[in-house]
Design a protein around this nucleic acid. Sequence first.
DNA 1: GCGGTGACGGTCG
DNA 2: CCGACCGCCACCG
Length: 108
Amino acid sequence: MDAATRERFEEFYAVVRRIPRGQVATYGQVAELAGYPGRARQVGRALGLLPPGSDVPWFRILNAAGVISLPRGDGFERQRDALRAEGIDVTDEGRVRLRHIRFLPGSE
DNA sequence: GCGGTGACGGTCG
DNA sequence: CCGACCGCCACCG
């Protein structure tokens, strides 16, 4: 991984850290806010590299449909539990009401 | 270097 | 609501 990529991933993390408790954002939104529109895929890649116990709230990131994108399994359940732990309604399928809890810059 | 893969997403039908 | 297509890009075999 080159320096430019690491730098970009750090910028993604910085955006994710700004998302308030109880709110969520989409991969594409994080990429856009970081200044890299169209690179939603790399946001997922970056979040996947986070070590356990990171201060980056990776679990507040969902896909554009408002659904957890992690494949079913331990990771999927950890994210679902983390969201519920902060009062967010999440269906067993991992869907939230995006329109109601989406992070909107400026409404912080 | 090439092709496939995947924590993605907008557009169309 | 769903699937197909295409654009995106780091990583892997």
